[in-house]
C-alpha cells in the first residue's frame, strides 16, 4: 500500500469512527459533556454580566410598568384569596368526607440561566441547577408568564432545558376557551404549533392555549401561549394553529423548575 493510500485510509477512519459513535449513542460521554458545560459557564456568565445589566437598564421603564401592574394584580388576588379561603376549607372538608385523593402538591427550584446553546438548530438553555438540587429529566420549567420548557438533561450542577420553541418539544394542550385538545410542538421559526385540532374546531386568533391534564409531565392549566394564525394541516384532516409562546424565550434570566 502506497504512502498516499495509507494517508487516505487514516483520514477516512478519522471520519468514520465518530460517525459510528453517532449510532451507538454511548453514555460514557455524558460526564465529559457536563464538565465542559461547567468549565465554560463561568467565563460566559462573567462576559454576559455587563450585557445583561445594560439590557436591564434599557428596559427599566417596561420593568417599572410591569412592577406597577403586578402590584395591582397581587392586591386583587390577595383579596380574592381571602374571600375564597372559606370555600377552600369547605372544599377540603367535603373532600375528606368523600375520601378523594388530595391534589398533588408541587415544590419548585429557582434556577439562573447561564446561556443558550450556540446552535441555530436547537432552542436550549443551560441553567445553574442540577441533580444536586433535586433536578431530574422531564421536569416542567416555567416562569411568571407561563411554560418555558422541560428539563432534557440534568448534570450534577447544571441542566439543559429544552425550550417550548424547539422542534423536539411536545406537550398535550387545549384551547382554554373552547376546551378542544391538541398537541403543542416547537418549530424552527421560534413559535409553536398546536396540532390535531378537529376540522370543525371553533378556535380563533387570540385564544389562549394551556397545558392539558393529559400531559404526563406538566401540571394542568399552565399558559403556553396565544393563537396567532390558523392553518389547515397538509398531512391530516385537522386544523393547526401557530402559537406565540407567552414567555419571551430569548430574554430568560431566571426560571422555575417544578418538582413533583
Amino acid at each position: 500500500m502506497s504512502k498516499n493510500h495509507k494517508k487516505f485510509l487514516a483520514y477516512l477512519i478519522v471520519l468514520i469512527i465518530p460517525f459510528i459513535f453517532l449510532f451507538l449513542r454511548p453514555k460514557i460521554f455524558t460526564p465529559l459533556k457536563f464538565q465542559i458545560v461547567q468549565g465554560t459557564s463561568l467565563p460566559v456568565r462573567i462576559l454576559l454580566f455587563p450585557f445583561r445589566e445594560i439590557r436591564k437598564m434599557l428596559t427599566y421603564h417596561r420593568t417599572y410598568e410591569d412592577y406597577r401592574r403586578l402590584k395591582q394584580e397581587v392586591a386583587i388576588l390577595t383579596n380574592r384569596i381571602t374571600g375564597q379561603e372559606e370555600l377552600l376549607r369547605e372544599n377540603e372538608r367535603l373532600r375528606d368526607i368523600l375520601d378523594l385523593k388530595k391534589g398533588v402538591v408541587f415544590s419548585s427550584v429557582t434556577a439562573n440561566v447561564i446561556g443558550r446553546d450556540p446552535s441555530n438548530w436547537n432552542a436550549v438553555i443551560i441553567v445553574d441547577k442540577g441533580e444536586a438540587d433535586g433536578i431530574s429529566t422531564d421536569m416542567p420549567v416555567v416562569n411568571t408568564y407561563g411554560v418555558v420548557g422541560k428539563v432534557a438533561e440534568a448534570g450534577p450542577k447544571t441542566s439543559k432545558i429544552l425550550l417550548l420553541s424547539d422542534p423536539g418539544f411536545s406537550v398535550a394542550a387545549l384551547n382554554q376557551r373552547t376546551r378542544e385538545g391538541g398537541v403543542v410542538t416547537g418549530t424552527l421559526q421560534g413559535v409553536c404549533r398546536l396540532r390535531y385540532l378537529p376540522p370543525d374546531s371553533k378556535v380563533e386568533v387570540g385564544d389562549l392555549v394551556v397545558t392539558s391534564k393529559l400531559s404526563s409531565s406538566f401540571p394542568e392549566g399552565l399558559l403556553l401561549g396565544r393563537v396567532i394564525k390558523l392553518e389547515a394541516s397538509q398531512s391530516s384532516p385537522t386544523i393547526e394553529c401557530l402559537v406565540q409562546p407567552a414567555v419571551a424565550l430569548s430574554q430568560l434570566e431566571e426560571v422555575l423548575i417544578i418538582q413533583k
Partner: peptide
C-alpha cells in the same frame, strides 16, 4: 484542521441536545 474540527465539534456537542458527535462529524466533513 481535523484536530480543530474534532475539538470544536466536541465543545459544540457538549452544549447541544442533539445526538452526541453530530457536530464532530459535520466539522470533520
Amino acid at each position: 484542521s481535523l484536530a480543530t474540527a474534532f475539538w470544536a465539534g466536541l465543545l459544540k456537542d457538549s452544549l447541544s441536545l442533539q445526538v452526541f458527535g453530530l457536530n464532530i462529524v459535520a466539522f470533520l466533513f
